[in-house]
Design a protein around this nucleic acid. Structure first.
Ligand SMILES: [Mn+2]
Ligand SMILES: [Mn+2]
Ligand SMILES: [Mn+2]
Ligand SMILES: [Mn+2]
Lengths: 217, 217
DNA sequence: TTTAATTTTTAGCTTTGTCTAAAAATAAAT
DNA sequence: ATTTATTTTTAGACAAAGCTAAAAATTAAA
């Protein structure tokens, strides 16, 4: 399995994880920042290897083996992110790029030992679940802060956007995983939210709220 | 810098580190398990990028920038080996292959943080020196056990052959880095050595002795 | 239901790194 | 000093992964 094949599987996995229907060539091309023609070429290759179900012009989906492969790459990515944050003291906005490289290291023994070394974490630094060695995922119920109604409270458990810009914004506002968030009121004009973060009042835009996952208290 | 370019630089570095004259195309081909024609192609590319001094038919050597690049790859390789052994509890015969992959991960910050996390080790699990962030190497004086004369004693500080087979043999004989070795006598017929390892008497072949580095007591 | 727009695929080209086979240069041996 | 052997380089081919431009299929619009 080449790096490129692994990256395509991962992209298809992420695109199909929420809407579990087939995914389009263009959607993959956009996510991978490549051209549709390149995607078509790769889909044929992945189809020959039985990692995807592909019929011309009809979108693509992962086979069971393709899904497992994808989950193992995601597992590696997220475990390495935990390592970088917990052991090497990286901040959560710096780890994604490095994990993009580390996720391609091939050694089952390595990743399982790393898993143990980290204490078998179930979530990565961004609150995303880490598949176990068999591909099982423990999904916690969480919802977007933007979907709450005033006077509800929750704990911040994840971010939807994991861009460095967004994560740095959260650092600046002192919003972190584990922060208690009380939803006070919503402004009807721009849908911005007045909230309390660990007791401290703050106003955030709806865009921010729709990228923050909370678990209701 | 591609993985392949990095591997060539590393090979040339290792081939020139002892005999610091130019190295032949064939020698590189043999070390990299590839063909001489492939080597020639790569040497042109590395020469264009000023990593090597290369003139047709006249062997090749590293430029200063090439040597520094090579050292940084060796640094990464050896630091990752320390990580695998010290933190993840791998044995010293398992780490080389994985380090061959990890040495290509690109992030200066990562490797320097890893270095600190490991306590800035100066040697890897096989006793080889780890270049620092600037490429400096602290060489300890050591010699092959096969070069000693009877009644000399030393501490085992390194291995020349790092193959899994050899390392497993040493494990079996309970010879490890740090073991005290007393050289008792040499058999004239086959040059085999009678030694004591931490007080326990043992006979080893000359081939073994010529792959063990000791520091004289 | 034709036409128009969009999406997807194909065809052909490029780069990287590899290979084999042949040619050229160097080294060794008569 | 030739001839022979070895080493090194070149020439040409191939697979992987990407691209552009054109063709084909599908979807949307008129
Ligand atoms: Mn990530
Ligand atoms: Mn993450
Ligand atoms: Mn090694
Ligand atoms: Mn080593």
């Amino acid at each position: 399995m080449t790096f490129s094949e692994e990256n395509y599987l991962k992209a298809i996995y992420h695109l199909t994880s929420h809407s579990n229907s087939g995914v389009s060539t263009n959607a993959i091309a956009e996510m991978m920042e490549t051209k549709a023609s390149s995607v078509t070429d790769m889909l044929k290759k992945l189809s020959d290897k039985d990692f995807v179900n592909y019929k011309k012009y009809q979108g693509v989906s992962l086979t069971e083996s393709g899904k497992l492969e994808a989950k193992m790459i995601v597992r590696k990515h997220r475990l390495w992110e935990v390592f970088l944050v917990e052991k090497l003291d990286f901040s959560w906005d710096e780890v994604h790029e490095i994990a993009e490289q580390l996720e391609h290291i091939k050694s089952e023994k390595l990743i399982n030992k790393l898993d143990d070394f980290l204490g078998n974490p179930t979530e990565d630094p961004h609150g995303d679940p880490i598949p176990d060695a068999k591909g099982r995922i423990i999904a916690i119920e969480k919802q977007l802060l933007s979907e709450l109604v005033p006077h509800q409270s929750g704990v911040c458990v994840g971010v939807k956007d994991t861009s460095s810009a967004f994560l740095k914004y959260l650092d600046k506002q002192e919003i972190a995983l584990g922060s208690t968030i009380d939803f006070i009121s919503k402004e009807t004009f721009d849908l911005s939210l007045k909230i309390k973060v660990d007791g401290k009042e703050l106003t955030i835009s709806n865009k921010i709220a729709s990228n923050l996952f909370v678990k209701l208290l």
